[in-house]
Structure formats: structure tokens, C-alpha cells
Design a protein around this nucleic acid. Sequence first.
DNA 1: GCCGTTTTCGGCCCGACTGTTTTCAGTCG
Length: 573
Amino acid sequence: MSNSEIAAFFKELADLLEIKGDNPFRIRAYRNAARTIETSGYDFTKLVQEGYDLSRLPDIGDRIAKKIAEIVTTGKLQKLEELKKEFPPHILDLLKIEGIGPKRARALYEKLGIGSLEELRKAAEEHRIRELPGFDVKTEEKILKGVVLYKKEGKRFLYSQAEPFARALYDHLKKFPAIQRLSVAGSFRRRKETVGDLDIVATSEDPLGAMDHFTSFAGIGEVVSKGDTRSTIILENNLQVDFRVVSDASFGAALHYFTGSKAHNIAVRKMAVEKGWKVNEYGVFDENLQRIAGTDEEEIYALFGMEYIEPELREDRGELEAAKAKRLPRLVRVEDLRGDLHLQLPVDADADTIDKLIQTAKKLGYRYLCLCAKTSKLFCSHGRSCPPLQDHLKMLEEARKRHKGIHIFAGVDVEILEDGNLAYSDEELEAFDLVIAGVEEDLGLEKEAQTRRILRALENPRVQILAHPSCRIIAQRNGCSLDLEVIAQAAAHHGICLEIDARPERLDLNDAHIKRLREYGVRFSLGSLASNPEEMDRIRYGLYQARRGWLEAESLVNTLDPKELEAWLKEKE
DNA sequence: GCCGTTTTCGGCCCGACTGTTTTCAGTCG
């Protein structure tokens, strides 16, 4: 069972207990445990099977450890089964409506028997909701609007989808003269692969004017709230944007607060409480409520004796402990990249296509790039005609003559067949500088078989990179069932890199995987999978993911100089 | 529920906005 499936049990448990009115701290404990399960990067099913003591993990005690074991071994959680009997099956849908929390959901169910969105809509249309205590005409209208909106609502946005809106809003706000400091915060600043909303923080001596300017942005669907210091809007594409204005002395604290993550913030506040201090979005305050930091983020971390923690690391995944011990990783930067190790040439690529890619690579300051023939057996069997591998090699040979000062590696994408053999023979692969092997179909194999399949492919001495190891597509397809830790160990042993596929809907491996697997000493490679010059820039999405995975330049082969890279490739032979 | 250099009990992050609450509850982030 996947970690997110296990975590879902605890989230559901927490939601139902909240509606029931249970102890809020127990509810929080379940939510914290769900977060640990989802973000720690451990394979909880494997941990249970191996008999690991789960209560050693943060936010997991004896009781929850037992529940996790129960879920993994029986596929069920008795406590949750019993709790579900007390409520209609779709009651949790009510919580997804803006303005309905646990208290109101309970009131709606107990007083009006509402247990689904359909019943909620009907009750709102019949004006039965406004009669309830704690509700009125306005809440009823808001609920009705929420139900209608819910149906067309997308959930989270890919980072790359939110990015143009973040830029447009930033530019819009920059135009307001009375705004001084300005930053996008939230999960966007942490470069999370998906963002639920955008958070923007600014300083201004004219907060009201700034709010007016904010809500004058073109493309607003709805102004949800508008106050003196904080406003919320929903764009026409349903992306929510929160805007916060503070004084200059509070900017660092506000930026820190709104960058999150929530878990990171809570951990920082706990550190403050231990010292008798208080941290909020206005600053750090000592026992006499004197502000002792807040202008800049740096001084806040320094005050606690910590190194500055980059936003990508702020997930309460050990970064605070590392910062205290001054052992934070020196995260790999865009400037460290020397090349792109996975471009996919379209099947109809000609000299002009290749020239444009190379010219763009030079503009990006690359010393090398790897151009791969998109010629996997699977790809070419679906009625497409693919040029022979020899043609690909010949085109690249000619390109090398036209372009000096940049190293062009001839790569090939090769499919790992169901039995772990590769789709091309050793002789066919031999002519290439770089062989990138990946699973393309039979994604539904049992974990053991899938792992064995990949391990076998890694034993092939021609293979240098394992492509998109988990095979997931964000919000569309879960990854293969795999023992990634065993695969990482084998890859490290064979000197094979694990790829970080930078396509924004892939980002495979993800941040948690990278963070866990780097501990096995395996190296990673980064590829844009671009087929045209415009797509080459998206390599940075993969780099952001690498940073979220605590990766230093040494662990990413794209930071090697051409000579060092060739040495690594030779090493393999 | 979890957690612990004030440990096995008694804490558990903090504040803005909305509505109609004249001092606060509910929701949200």
C-alpha cells in the first residue's frame, strides 16, 4: 500500500472525529502522523513488513504505529470503520465547501440531515439553511455559491501552471508606487511541485491603497475577503491568491510566516516558546514583548543560532536540526549546471532542429548536452516510422563538426522490457555515449517483479542512467510499485545515475525520494526531456526538485565539467 | 493522539477576516 493511501486513513479519521467534536489535540496528532507518513520518504509498507519500530519516527507513537500496522496488514482500520457508521458516507464532502468547517458540517447533518453536496445544494436553494443557528442569509448564499464552484474547481496547480500568474501578480503589484518590498511566498517560494494557492507579502505605508491596487488585478473571478492588512481573491482559473501587507520592520517575519511550511513554522515557534519568546508574522518578541527580530528572515534564523534555511528545505524534515548543527547542505544552484543530459529529438529532426537546440544550450551557458534518439521500440511500434539509430548518430556527428565549444553526447532512450532486458542489443547500444534506460509499459507489475525487472536492467554495463524511476505523472498516475531503496543501492554499486525528469508534470524522482535515496551515495542526473528550444528552460523545475531533495552539486552529474563527465562515462565501461 | 535537559502529566502555534458575536465562534491559512 502506498504512503498516501495509508495517510488517507488518518486524514479521514481526523476529519470525522472533528465533526464528531473529539479532542482537538488527538485530531491534530492524527494529522501530524499523516504528514510524516506522506513526506518522510520511507516506504511504510516495507517498514511494517520488516518489523521496524515505527514509533521512533516523529509524530508516531505506539498507538498510531499499531494502527499503521493494522492498515498495512488488513487493509482496514477498525476504529475508522466504526466511526464511519455514525455518519452518512459523503459527509466529508461538506468540508470541501468554502465556509463550512467541522462545526457547521455537524450542525447541517444533525439539524437538517444533510449528508452530501447534493442535499446541501437542495437545502440552500430551499432556504432551509438560513434558519439554523450560526447560519444566516449570507452564509447560505456563500454555501450555494461554493457548491456550484466546487464542481468546476481544480485542485492543486502544477508549479509551472501557477508560475505565470505569480509573475503577473508580482509585476502588477510592483507598479504600485507605495509598495516597497515585495515577494511571493508560500509553497510557490518553496518550489513545491504543486501549489494550492499563491501567497504574496509586501510592505507599504499605504496598506489600504495597496489592497485596492491588489483587487484591481485583471483576471479576478471573485474577491473573497478584503481587510486592512490582508485580502484574498480567486482568479478566473480558480487559483486563490492571498495578499498580506505589513510594515517594513515586520517584512522578514511575515515572509517567513507566509512561506511556511506550516510544519516548519510550528517547529520554529516551539523553539521560541522554549526560550520564553513568541514568533508571529510581525516579528520575534522576547518575554517583555519587545521585538528582537523581524526585518529580514536571516536575522530570525540567526537569533535561534541557526544557519539560514533556504525556502526549499522548510518542510520540518530535519532542516531545523541541521541548521542548528550548521550542517545544512549547500544546495545545488542553477549556475552550477554545466549541461542538460536528456533532450529528446523528435523523429523528424533535421540539422536545423539540432542547430537550434545547440544554440540555445550555448545561450544557457552549457558546456555539453545529450541529444537522445526517441526511438524506443514501444514508441516506434505505434504506427510511427522512426529513423534507424545509425541516422541519429550520423546527424550528431555532422552537428559536432558545425559546433565547436560545446560537447554533444549521443544518447539513446532505451526501453526496459518486462523481463528486465533492454529493447536494443549491446551492439546497437555500443555506439552511443549515453544509454538512458527506462520502464515505459507494464507499470502495474507487482512490487517484487517490478523491482527485479529494474535491477536486472541495471546489471547491463551499457546503462548509465535510469530514466524517470517511479514513472508517476503528477495527479494523473501513481508511480510503479517499487523498492526504490534497493534500486538506489544497486545503482550506486553499478555507478548508474538516477534521473530527475524535469518535465513539470513528471518531476520524477520527487523531492522525498531524492532526499532519502541520496543517503545511499547514488548520484543523480537532470534532464529537461526537451524536444525544442522553448522546453529547455524547464530543466530548472527539476533543479528545484533536486534542491527540495537536499541535493548538493557533488551529487548531480550535470555539474561536472565535460572532462569529468567523460571520465565518469569511461568508468562505466 | 504525541511528547519530554522543568518527562509519565499537562501541555499542545498564532492571528486575520466574517458575521451581528456587543466580547466571540467559526473558518482559514
